[in-house]
């Protein structure tokens, strides 16, 4: 997609302007306004059903896959409205990578897991070199370099998740969306993914959804706290409570709900 913002690398990556998120006529999340800084880690926290994953999946328009899902409002990336008719979601997703809650390597070899994305994106360079570079960047090269031909499903969960990160960064996106990337991992794997995130933020804008508040304090620069309230029809509706630097959210939040949540009184 076209990027015409003058402040690439220093300014705002995404600007979410007073946006509501719907599934059919059901308003799942309301009133989200925030700006995601470039090359920082932004964390979305909040209780289950608060819509943080829904919001995340709109940054690469993955929610387009659900026919009833739509938004009201505006999300811009580097000044371009990503829901504009002229924006092809395929192109958008080539710039905005994603790592999912459960590791989802393809049922192909480790090598092919990386090569697939590059190939469909028309990569013409040295594939071996790209595979090695991507696996090194995801801190998993040493563990898999002798079994590149083996199935991506044959390695451990933590390794699979780093393989999925390698797969996402192999196509050199500008943004990495992470939807609870550590929730299926043990503490040691979690730590290696978190260390990896710190390295990756030198080059990528990262947005992470997490249930784990300690993780948010450890890794993120900015934190958005979402909360959920029951609707009349029995469902839950999410809304953005507070968005501030992570230090502020955890030490001196403005809102009482944020204070209650980060101190563990609910959620």
């Amino acid at each position: 997609m076209q990027t015409n913002s003058p402040a690439v690398g220093t300014g705002t990556a995404f600007y979410v302007d007073n946006t509501d998120y719907y599934y059919g006529s059901f308003q799942a999340v309301r009133d989200v306004t925030l700006d995601i800084p470039e090359r920082k880690i932004t964390a979305f926290i909040g209780p289950s059903g608060c819509g943080k994953s829904t919001v995340l999946r709109c940054f690469n328009r993955l929610n387009d896959l659900i026919p009833s899902a739509h938004i009201k409002g505006r999300i811009t990336y580097r000044g371009v409205d990503i829901y504009d008719k002229g924006v092809d979601p395929i192109d958008l997703r080539r710039n905005i990578g994603m790592v999912f809650q459960k590791p989802n390597p393809f049922p192909k070899s480790i090598y092919e897991n990386i090569a697939f994305g590059a190939r469909i994106n028309g990569y013409k360079g040295d594939m071996d070199e790209l595979v090695e570079r991507s696996l090194r960047a995801a801190a998993i090269w040493d563990e898999v370099k002798d079994k590149l031909k083996e199935s991506g499903l044959s390695i451990s969960g933590g390794q699979q998740q780093r393989l999925c990160i390698a797969r996402a960064i192999a196509i050199e996106p500008q943004v990495l969306l992470m939807d609870e990337p550590c929730s299926a991992l043990d503490p040691i794997s979690t730590r290696s993914v978190e260390e990896l995130m710190q390295e990756l933020k030198e080059r990528y804008t990262i947005i992470i959804v997490t249930h784990n508040m300690q993780q948010a304090t450890r890794v993120s620069d900015m934190t958005a706290f979402f909360n959920a309230e029951p609707t009349e029809k029995g469902g839950k509706q999410g809304y953005l409570v507070e968005y501030a630097p992570t230090q502020t959210i955890f030490n001196s939040p403005q809102m009482e709900a944020t204070q209650d949540y980060v101190s563990g009184r609910f959620g």
Partner: peptide, 8 residues
């Protein structure tokens, strides 16, 4: 979803 997220 993993494939779509890579721009497939």
């Amino acid at each position: 979803q993993g494939a779509y997220a890579l721009g497939a």
